[in-house]
Design a protein around this nucleic acid. Structure first.
Lengths: 336, 336
DNA sequence: CTAACAATGGAGAACGTTCTACACAATACC
DNA sequence: GGTATTGTGTAGAACGTTCTCCATTGTTAG
């Protein structure tokens, strides 16, 4: 062993055949006898040969899929990753993640880098670029976009049905007897269309209307502080709401703090619900009612669609994943 | 434009020079006149040329660094990533993350995959493989190991000074007047040596001894439930501790719940401290005293060491990052 | 018996870079 | 005026695969 790496030529020499034959066996291509198959497979095992992905890249596939993460702190991104890798576990594909940052510029740099590394396809999680940029990327490489409503013709999309999720919360609260239900959303500032918070707010409005109730949306931000400030404002009103639905769990935590400080007990004086079902929502001390997005299913679906695209499908698909409501201790009937 | 991708040959043709010349300019190599530099740079800009990483891989560098994550749910891994990318932001290197899973086998598969993709170096975060496997990987590619004590000659290591961190907590509690301080650790089950929880427990013991106090270590697990169970056992004792130091914040949350249920108020009846300073520790409603590991510094250091290794250093380095204690509302003087 | 065909294996040209070796010119030294 | 020396540019061979032909066998049909 001179240079470390075992190449296809080493295998060919060992098996006494040509490199072309080895390549055929490795790829499972047509035109290989059983005998050849056996010889080569044995040589591969003996030498511990693994194909060199970079060399493959120059001709065909790399069997590498890229997942661009817009925010590594996103609480359900681990679930999505697990869904992706789980779905791909028994295939030859490998998954690599690219931290894209939250700026359009850094995200573009990352997608470029992934394309330069000849990945076979890309999953973009909540990308913030414009539709035009997205289309340009999709023209260069198969793409599946996750978490952005209103997919385009050039790529596939997987979204949580945020309208439905918001509806589940409103239905639940109305079912408990609430009528004054406020919603805290994130202040719109990005140029990108179809971001989840917008859709959740719209779903909330639709559901309230369906129940014949007046909607009440306050825009702060999806942070603990944003939830706190929003709740404080809402709770200071004359006819304060009996329930607050925050568009994200992290904001719901701020709402809980505001309730604490106002001396209101939850859920007796105020019901609180969030969205995302982040890990700590299930801690007994928090026990936050929330909407769960099933990141596993989202990730698995995205992986599935991407592989289909790579292997030839050209018609574009948008898949909507239904969320479920997890009822916990922060919601209950209003005081009569 | 026929096939999409702009190659070095296209640039060479446009600038009227050889491909070798373009390559020199791109790499900033020696032997290029100012005039040549200008011509080529202009052609590159006009055509929007980007080097094809996979092709580069076959000869030299890929300018890609891999970070293997053992657990995507690890609460401070986003900080580490930010530290790494921040340190590398102004270089040519790109960072890709590989979800390695928590099994030795899947982690090995991921590191293999990264090597097959000709990455220039690897950062392994809390790998669970044996020292021998680690050494084998380090023989094939420059490696920096993060979060595992007792680094070896073949690779660099960055660790949090867990002994010091545990000491900070004990010193703080003793300073407040506590003498009965218990520690909850994680049940040892892995084959890997030098994992943080072991070192934290040892640091706790050392610090207690230094203060002339008796140590009291209980091993459950680093989960909310583990912290809860452990605390319940500790609090049922006759001379129950006045302070509990959990080796991880998630366990400390369980301790807080146990205190709630036992009707003990924090910090008057029981002081609680954690380790890791996870995001929610700073929420006002939790306000957990914790040890902060500064993931940014850890990540940045790891990136720095890896680049140095790649660029030629052969002597192995172990860097220890000092943690800091973040005092919040869950610790205070014991009741007299 | 020959033509046609299927099945199998191999030669060798890509793929887009890097990098060693060399060619050539201009300058410096004796 | 010849020989080093330096500076600048190019040719062309790698790197490890894939994949399109082509060559060689048998086999089958007529």
């Amino acid at each position: 062993m001179t240079s470390g790496r075992v190449t296809i030529a080493d295998v060919a020499r060992r098996a006494g055949v040509s490199t072309a034959a080895v390549s055929k066996v490795v790829r499972g291509a047509y035109g290989v006898s059983a005998e050849m198959q056996a010889k080569v497979t044995q040589a591969i095992d003996e030498l511990g040969y693994r194909p060199h992905a970079a060399a493959r890249a120059l001709r065909g596939r790399t069997y590498t899929l890229g997942v661009m993460l817009s925010d590594t702190r996103n609480p359900f991104f681990p679930d999505i990753i697990e869904g992706v890798t789980g779905r791909l576990g028994d295939t030859e594909y490998q998954v690599l993640l690219g931290p894209g940052g939250i700026e359009p510029k850094t995200q573009a740099r990352m997608t470029d880098a992934m394309i330069d590394r000849s990945m076979d396809g890309l999953i973009l999680i909540s990308p913030v670029m414009t539709d035009a940029e997205l289309a340009a990327i999709a023209a260069a490489i198969p793409v599946v976009v996750v978490g952005r409503h209103g997919g385009a013709a050039a790529y596939d999309a997987v979204v949580d049905d945020d309208v439905m999720g918001a509806g589940l919360v409103v239905d639940h609260l109305v079912g408990l007897g609430h009528t004054r239900i406020a919603h805290i959303t994130h202040l719109e500032r990005a140029r990108a269309q179809g971001l989840p918070h917008t859709v959740r707010a719209e779903g909330y409005r639709q559901a309230m209307r369906a129940h014949g109730l007046a909607d009440d949306v306050l825009a702060t931000s999806f942070t603990e502080e944003g939830g706190f400030e929003g709740a404080r404002e809402l709770l200071a009103r004359d006819d304060r709401p009996t329930a607050i639905f925050a568009g994200a769990d992290i904001a719901a935590l701020g709402v809980l703090r505001a309730a604490d400080e106002a001396g209101l007990s939850v859920p007796e004086d105020l019901s609180v619900a969030g969205y995302d079902n982040i890990g700590i929502a299930s801690l007994k001390r928090i026990s936050l009612t929330s909407v769960d997005q099933d990141g596993h299913v989202i990730g698995a679906t995205a992986a599935q669609l991407l592989v289909e695209r790579i292997e030839g499908r050209s018609r574009s698909v948008t898949s909507s994943v239904s969320p479920t409501l997890i009822v916990r201790g922060t919601t209950g009937p209003p005081r009569p």
